[in-house]
Design a binder for these strands. Sequence first.
DNA 1: GTGAAAGCGCTAACAT
DNA 2: ATGTTAGCGCTTTCAC
Lengths: 359, 359
Amino acid sequence: MPVTLEAIAKAAGFSVSTVSRALTNPDYPVNPATRQRIQEVARAMGYKPNLAARSLRTDQTNTIGIIADDILSPFVPPIIRGIQDYLKQYDYLSLIVNSDWDPDIEQDAINALISRPVDGIIFVESSHLARNESLQQSGKPYIFAHRLFGSTIQNSVVPDDHYGATLAVRHLVSLGHRRIAIINGREGWHSAERRYEGYQAELKAQGIEFDPALVQWGDWEYEGGYNAARALLDISPRPTAIFAANDLMALGTVCAIQDAGLRVPQDIAVVGYDNREFTRIVRPKITTVSMPVYEMGRTAAELLLKQIAEGRQALDEIKIKGQLFIRETCGADPSQQTPEGVDMATVTRRVLLRKDPDR
Amino acid sequence: MPVTLEAIAKAAGFSVSTVSRALTNPDYPVNPATRQRIQEVARAMGYKPNLAARSLRTDQTNTIGIIADDILSPFVPPIIRGIQDYLKQYDYLSLIVNSDWDPDIEQDAINALISRPVDGIIFVESSHLARNESLQQSGKPYIFAHRLFGSTIQNSVVPDDHYGATLAVRHLVSLGHRRIAIINGREGWHSAERRYEGYQAELKAQGIEFDPALVQWGDWEYEGGYNAARALLDISPRPTAIFAANDLMALGTVCAIQDAGLRVPQDIAVVGYDNREFTRIVRPKITTVSMPVYEMGRTAAELLLKQIAEGRQALDEIKIKGQLFIRETCGADPSQQTPEGVDMATVTRRVLLRKDPDR
DNA sequence: GTGAAAGCGCTAACAT
DNA sequence: ATGTTAGCGCTTTCAC
């Protein structure tokens, strides 16, 4: 039987309200001696406040909901980790639900979360449509982290794919390449379009003429990258570098090049995108632009908590920049890595883990 | 302003208690006409029960807590997915917290969860010690999924590492190998010891004499696997097959063999352990034994829900068996794959995803 | 079959 | 500085 405020009140010889104030309201004027006594008793009895009761009163629960398409999607765990690390500073916890790309399941998830003691919701890689009646009606704030489809939307945090593509191309140009091919993602995907735009924009900025013959459309998968790369190898003159719009296709590209009897990076350089884990494991290690997953999570959490505190707002979409990670598929010296080119996720987490006194 | 029972009662012309019974207690005798009317009104008004209020009354919350060392550890997301998929059938949700291998943080996490409306807790890969006073005192049931250290403990679900090692060795023997080396994990780790035992036991079962010269201790990492493999290559006669106690070391092993000018699997066969994602991506694809992550999650959830319903119990440790995934590092025909050798996680999820033709 | 009323544990007026 | 009291939304006796 859990310890209640009343039990403590009885044991300490005070009223329930004094106990409540002594324990949870540091600003309320309570006799220091009284406060201390009550705190001692509470600790001794192992008091744990019943948050259900508290939130029933205060209508605030220190819990948020996260709806993700699938916690097994590669980017989802680090986004969630970013969210959670930010929440932790404010003693918030997160309730996590998968929606499996299914609008019905997603609606169920929304309902399940709304009824529950939750102060707000973050949609992670969720296909959710902008308007949702029950969500709207609930009055609870919600944010989108890493939307995959659809147009720009308020209160969302997305990667700056245009900028990222720019980094990749600029790196290749800096190494002397001028015939730079692109293997793009699936049509209709937000990120595929932005990365393609970035590719073209940076070519232009570098004074290189855009050649449609060097453009291939892939499918985000290994196979698509492999096939697209094969097609690219038949062009003459051959491209000297290939920018694949994600790491899986970059890997397919590397294999296709090797299977054709050529070497990476000596004969053809390759840059990927996403900074997936395997890019550090395969041989040669893949140079790539990171998806700022952890930072997107943190930012989304920050936005949400702000809106929980200050009420719903209509904030413009926020773009988070990724970084270039120089590895082995371009032949560049890794020490050329810009100082920003550190995995922020690792850095931030290290800071959090240091147990700094501030928290 | 959320819709309450009282609002519905007023709108439908009944008392709050009748509305409550009509909506949530199918067994209670309510006039069918009344019930239907109330349900209609509730739906029309968009009623969402306030779970905080309900749980304050019933002391039951349809929410569990999950404490994981780090949601970014490779096995954690699939274990969580297994838990969540099982919970879903019973309309349970999960609150997830990271403990970062720090006993203090873990204690905080336990406290945070206990105060909250949570019916039970699952520890995922948590270093948590068996006894915890506040947990004990809370009266809430808890289960361990995939404990990494320490001895056998009640109410825990772990992989059957002994059996898995057996599968690996048996596969190699079936392909004609008799000089089978092992690269083990770090000393002191539960799984390293069990896998080593399984290796020895299966050699014995196959009538092959155990040769201590063929044993190397690794560190679970790529580098350790690489170095251990190099050492193994210097032995004469050379082993014809190497069982690496995890996939990362298996990858290091493959690279070491190739760097020595030998071929995998023609000159030396390699089997890994864990069935990490990259084993399907690297070349050659790595034959491996799976960690039954998803199934461990499901089983842990099942156990927990059982204890929530029936009260705490002292159940013996449950061992879950993994499977052999035949790929390219042993030279075996993949069609030799036993019928059980399907990734259950994939199968189960496919069923869940059935609604979407694309996936 | 339905309603009135009590109470889960907590916080926040409102007294004193 | 402390105590008394009301009430958050719900379920559940206990009446009728």
